[in-house]
Design a protein around this nucleic acid. Structure first.
Length: 557
RNA sequence: GCGCGUGUAGCUCAGCUGGAUAGAGCGUUGGCUUGCGGAGCCAAAGGUCGUAGGUUCGAAUCCUGCCACGCGUACCA
């Protein structure tokens, strides 16, 4: 389709040049179905510079196109103030359905970093959201031919570790790593999460605890520097760190994503520190005892990269991360997905990197999203940390699904959550309503899954083999027209890194099909082979689109 | 204060590289079932696109002011 569309745009551009001697970028758009398959407003654009009536311009252009235009176009019409609408031949339209999305990233190495949970802490709703979005975006790169590497970054060192460790010691009654064996595997994550909350409160309320936590934080850096795995405290640290990664992996497996590499901060801190120090004077400078990057010179904020104690801040660790990713992958493009509270922060980091490694900064894209809000609110106990956890969201969806559907179905529950997250444009906060997401009516993941299952069911029901699609009837043509848009929609979602376009499209497609289905018999009709082909095309397209979103398309539900 | 972002129907959202009557879903109202999975389809009601200006043949879309909310604004991430 893309190729055909580009050819048509080019042909119109050539005609314009031949008639008026002007170069103009022609862009075909998708008009309302009543007008045609493609439309262009070139006549309106030209009328201004030519000083003539747009409809006259359109007529002149259409006459020319009718003489020498593409064979894929059946007719050109002029409408409204001077739009030119094109209607394709059935053959061209059907051919367009089989077009593959563009392989924009063929042969390119892409690193997608998302999710980024911190060891020793709980996974919250934001991690679920960013994981779902990141996974879908990574899928788009894969679809476009990229060699995609999914990676994850998290703080296995830092104050939050000290806080958790402090409370863990209290729970254990001291540095007794052997007591960890008493914690059952399924209680480890909540046990640690609770410790983090307790440690945080102690840090804020109790000066003595605060000093102890700061000391613990320093001690943890020491475990990495000395490669200490044997001292009692180190044993507790490494074991709990491992527990965290187990907990993350279990969660990712549940939601159907996985990462090929974790970059713990402990591994990026050193290289970050080193890199920043190497560029003191040219890029970074000393200020009030710290090493900073003067963002003011670039219309950004000044930020600290190495604090006055000589420790790397997150800024330096992020510098290290980008350097490390580069060493590991030599990527063509690196995408980092985080919450939008980090947007301006990341601009500073990238601007700093641009000063000494411009190609790295240029090939790095930072995408941000908002936070997940639960419709109707949810009871959040301060004992749990007063946050909406990832499992709370999944459990709410599962409960709603069970209530409506009468049974548990992880595939449907996940489809509901993922679709609800992805159908909204990435960037702003999103409102999640569990009831609505599983409702199976309206714009939901399960609606699409069901639509797919129903189509597959029809294909199962008959022995007749799908045939060629020709001489389309009105209802069929309308559906084919929609199917032909798929590749374009995927391309748009890929170039903008906006998966929601696919959601919007799939829902419109399903509505189109349901309408067709309601008014046209397939099995047993005299156009059965043709329509079966249409049904299969539809089911395949739905399945393909859902797969890009990371949503399963069961054959039966 | 400054910077970034958001503001579209009762609710949740598309549309935002300017174009043809501003689109969906939920909810509301009415219709369709002796049929391939009715978890559907058809239809109606509902919007001064935050607000005031500006640019343009044409603005939800671009520019400016203002209002509301969110985030950021040096040693957190």
């Amino acid at each position: 389709m893309l190729i055909m569309k580009e050819e048509l745009e080019k042909a119109i551009g050539v005609a314009v040049t031949e008639i008026w001697g002007k170069e103009i970028a022609v862009e075909l758009t998708r008009p309302d179905e009543q007008f045609g398959d493609f439309a262009t407003n070139v006549a309106l654009q030209l009328a201004g510079t030519l000083g003539t009536n747009p409809r006259q311009v359109a007529e002149q252009l259409v006459t020319r196109l009718q003489e020498s235009g593409a064979s894929t176009v059946r007719e050109y019409t002029i409408a409204g103030p001077g739009f030119i609408n094109l209607r394709l031949t059935d053959t061209a339209l059907v051919a367009a359905c089989n077009a593959e999305p563009a392989k924009t990233y063929a042969g390119q190495v892409i690193v997608a970093e998302y999710s980024d949970p911190n060891p020793f802490k709980v996974l919250h709703a934001g991690h679920l959201y960013t994981s779902v979005v990141g996974d879908a975006i990574a899928n788009l790169f894969v679809q476009a031919g990229g060699d995609v590497h999914r990676v994850n970054f998290g703080g296995d060192v830092g104050l939050h570790v000290g806080k958790t460790l402090w409370a863990l010691l209290e729970k254990l009654g001291g540095e007794y790593p052997e007591k960890l064996a008493d914690i059952p595997a399924n209680e480890r994550a909540p046990w640690m999460a609770e410790a983090y909350v307790r440690g945080t409160n102690a840090y804020d309320d109790d000066p003595i605890a605060k000093d102890a936590i700061i000391a613990l934080n320093k001690a943890v850096y020491g475990f990495h520097e000395r490669d200490d795995h044997t001292s009692p405290l180190a044993q507790i640290y490494w074991t709990c760190r491992e527990w965290s990664y187990d907990y993350f992996n279990e969660f990712y497996a549940r939601i159907g994503t996985s990462f090929e590499k974790y970059y713990p901060e402990s591994e990026t801190a050193g290289i970050g520190l080193e890199t920043v120090r190497r560029h003191i004077g040219e890029v970074f400078e000393e200020s009030e005892g710290a090493i900073v990057f003067k963002g003011e010179n670039h219309d950004l904020h000044t930020r600290v990269f190495i604090n006055s104690q000589g420790l790397p801040t997150y800024e330096a660790k992020d510098v290290g991360l980008i350097m490390k990713k580069w060493d590991d992958y030599h990527f063509n493009r690196s995408v980092v997905i985080t919450g939008n509270e980090q947007m301006q922060y990341m601009q500073v980091v990238l601007k700093a990197i641009e000063q000494f490694a411009p190609e790295l900064a240029r090939s790095t894209t930072h995408l941000t999203h908002g936070i997940v809000k639960l419709a109707g609110g949810v009871k959040m106990s301060s004992r749990k940390g007063n946050i909406l956890r990832a499992v709370d969201v999944l459990d709410a969806a599962a409960a709603a699904n069970k209530e409506v559907h009468g049974q548990e179905d992880e595939g449907v529950t996940l489809g509901a959550v993922k679709y609800a997250f992805l159908r909204q444009r990435t960037g702003g906060d999103i409102m999640y309503d569990p009831q609505e997401s599983v409702s199976l009516e309206g714009n939901s993941g399960p609606y699409l899954q069901y639509a797919h299952a129903r189509a597959r069911s029809m294909l199962r029901k008959t022995e007749t083999q799908p045939g060629e699609l020709t001489d389309l009837e009105a209802g069929e043509r309308s559906l084919v027209r929609k199917l032909a848009e798929f590749a374009e929609v995927v391309d748009k979602a890929t170039s903008e890194l906006m998966p929601h376009h696919i959601c919007t499209y799939l829902y419109e497609l399903a509505q189109k099909f349901n309408s067709f289905y309601e008014h046209n018999r397939v099995i047993g009709s005299d156009r059965e082979t043709q329509r079966l082909r249409l049904v299969r095309l539809y089911a395949d397209t739905l399945q393909h689109g859902l797969a890009l979103l990371g949503i399963s398309a069961p054959d039966q539900m």
